[in-house]
Design a protein around this nucleic acid. Sequence first.
DNA 1: ACTATGTCCTGCGAGC
DNA 2: TGCTCGCAGGACATAG
Length: 269
Amino acid sequence: MPELPEVETIARGLAKRISGDVIESVWLGSKPEPLKSPASEIEAALRGKRISTVRRLGKHIVFDLESASGSASAQWIVHLGMTGSLLVCPPGLELEKHTHAVLQLASGRELRFVDPRRFGRLSVIEKFEAPGAEPLQIAFDDFAVLFHKRKTPIKSALLNQSLLSGVGNIYADEALFRARIRPRRRAASLTRDELRRLHQALKTVLKEAIKLGGSSVSDYVDADGEEGFFQLKHRVYGREGKPCRICKTPVKRIVIAGRSSHYCPRCQK
DNA sequence: ACTATGTCCTGCGAGC
DNA sequence: TGCTCGCAGGACATAG
């Protein structure tokens, strides 16, 4: 569900609310759970640990843990998949359907992981490193190299997490619109000027979305239960048949690599 | 090594 | 009202 701006918003909200809190106990749901690490390992790594920070890497949420003595411990990594959410709530609250993990915190609150579609993943690792580059940090030359000689459509390349970490379907479409590039273009066919525009557009759209708390399509809310507002700024995503905000030509929707892709046939070349 | 395709899940809204 | 169908913000395995 969430892409970089939504994950960033969630991580910031969690950092604000639960940094410094201590995990007293851990409950992990039964049967086919979305656990990448064994349940016993996750429980052992979390129980009794202090959450020193919460931050985002790619589409992953990283919980930096400390042991009681204050030394750095393993990291708890949460990937929300399409429909995952992390909720901070009072202990009495009835368990929502599809709750897969509950952490009791020393402050009396609970941190819950809920995920109906179960594409989300929980894991524990010493030091997590995202496979791809951070789109908000990558320099232009490194960005350009990523697409060098790639025959795949630029849209697919943007979604490839081992190239760039954090770009998903919405922001790929939105960045390509702003850069005036059609999603089906072969990545290697982009000119240097187009690559510059794409690099800039991607950073701009991601930053703007973070500012607005992400895009709330369907039921996304952040750690405080707040909706994002970037969906109001979408120029092509989810706007099939509606007039392009620049030239009024109806926005087209096509399927690339099984993902719906939206673009303006007039503005994007 | 790179690329295209299918699959994992549940829920929701559109259309009949 | 109730059913079926298609679709959903992701990532991985597999096959070519």
